[in-house]
């Protein structure tokens, strides 16, 4: 767990006497330090991928680390949409990564191509009109 910690620092000094805390991420147990955010505790354990894009499934991790971008959102003790970068870990916290949704509104290969935006709608409409 300390492999990725900055334990010694020439100006900020030593990182010592940290209290350990166990939590789970996607069912696996990890140890973080008290005061860690979910994002920092997971990164300290070498974990970068926190969710996948709900529609496309592309992997995502922390981006801004201060709550602006919402890229690091995870599910915490059953509550979805929690920013990993702003939420401190608790003992026995249960964290789940964000998963890809089966999206009935989005076109997939074998489904009807429903428009996602107004311009898509326009294109489909035009194509149909032009036959």
């Amino acid at each position: 767990m300390n492999k990725h910690r900055i334990l010694e620092h020439p100006v900020l000094g030593k990182l010592a006497n940290q209290k350990e805390m166990t939590f789970t991420f996607d069912g696996k147990k990890y140890i973080g330090y008290e005061g860690d955010t979910i994002a920092s505790a997971l990164l300290a354990n070498g974990i970068r991928k926190l969710r996948v894009h709900e529609e496309t499934g592309t992997p995502r991790g922390i981006y801004c680390n201060i709550g602006h971008c919402f890229e690091c959102r995870v599910t915490v003790d059953g509550k979805p949409g929690v920013r990993a970068c702003l939420t401190e870990i608790n003992r026995n916290m249960v964290i789940e990564s964000g998963k890809q949704h089966s999206t009935p509104f989005k076109p997939t290969d074998n489904e009807v191509d429903l428009p996602r935006t107004y311009s898509e709608f326009e294109n489909i409409y035009k194509e149909e009109k032009e036959g």
């Binding site: 910690r5 334990l7 990164l43 300290a44 970068r48 592309t58 991790g61 922390i62 801004c64 680390n65």
Partner: peptide, 22 residues
């Protein structure tokens, strides 16, 4: 958008506040 790409400010917070190597 790949995990491991972050804003420079994100790296600053991780390094100096959380003391975790990015």
């Amino acid at each position: 958008t790949l995990p491991g790409v972050m804003s420079i400010g994100a790296a600053q917070v991780m390094t100096n506040v959380h003391r975790v190597r990015v």
